[in-house]
């Protein structure tokens, strides 16, 4: 009885909490896969699993982080290896199209530039940068989402920053991302 009550409220929390998170989940999927279709698949798989395992969710805790954990593990355990082709990169898109005025365009240009730099980072660093700087998670929270020690987050961020610092201002030929 208590079980099912708990389940009911968890289910409700998950069902109602997910819709506002879908865009953020998609973005996480895009950052990981570099492909908007794969990102969509990831969100779908994540939602399905979240609904199935909703009794593991504690209402009142952060649903976003819980679902990030799911998405990250689906990506690593199931989807990454199944990628048929690498994505087109997440800097594509949609982005500049949104803008109309020149001012907005400037912002987008700059955003694009930053995203391109992020895109060239290895996945682990990219993901840490996204979770900590993009999503605003603490080191500890990011470590929980990725199921790694906090020190790993620190060293990935440090490596990413060192790399970006090195890239800055250098007019080098940019090589394809490995």
């Amino acid at each position: 009885m208590r079980e099912s009550e708990h389940h009911g409220s968890s289910r409700q929390a998950v069902e109602q909490g997910l819709p506002p998170l879908l865009k953020r989940l998609w973005r996480y999927g895009l950052v990981l896969s570099g492909d908007s279709e794969v990102a969509h698949d990831l969100v779908q798989a994540t939602c399905l699993r979240a609904l199935e395992k909703c009794d593991q969710f504690q209402p009142g805790t952060e649903l976003a982080r819980w679902t990030y954990t799911i998405l990250s593990s689906i990506w690593k355990n199931e989807l990454r290896s199944r990628r048929i082709r690498q994505g087109q990169g997440f800097v594509d898109p949609e982005i500049a199209l949104v803008a109309d005025g020149a001012r907005e365009m400037d912002t987008n240009l700059f955003a694009r530039q930053v995203l391109q730099e992020v895109e060239r980072l290895p996945e682990g660093q990219r993901e840490a940068v996204f979770l900590v700087y993009g999503e605003g998670l603490s080191y500890k929270e990011a470590a929980e989402v990725l199921d790694v020690p906090q020190g790993t987050i620190m060293s990935r961020l440090a490596a990413a920053r060192a790399k970006l610092a090195g890239l800055k201002g250098r007019h080098e030929t940019i090589m394809p991302a490995e």
């Binding site: 865009k23 939602c47 982005i95 987008n108 995203l115 970006l164």
Partner: peptide, 29 residues
């Protein structure tokens, strides 16, 4: 040096949020 490796990451990532196909995602959900 490490500080210069910082970027306005949040703003950049937020542009991606605007690009998310929300209608399609909501329909899927």
């Amino acid at each position: 040096l490490l500080e210069s490796g910082g970027r306005p990451f949040k703003q950049a990532f937020d542009v991606l949020l605007e690009a998310a196909p929300d209608d399609r995602l909501q329909a899927m959900f």
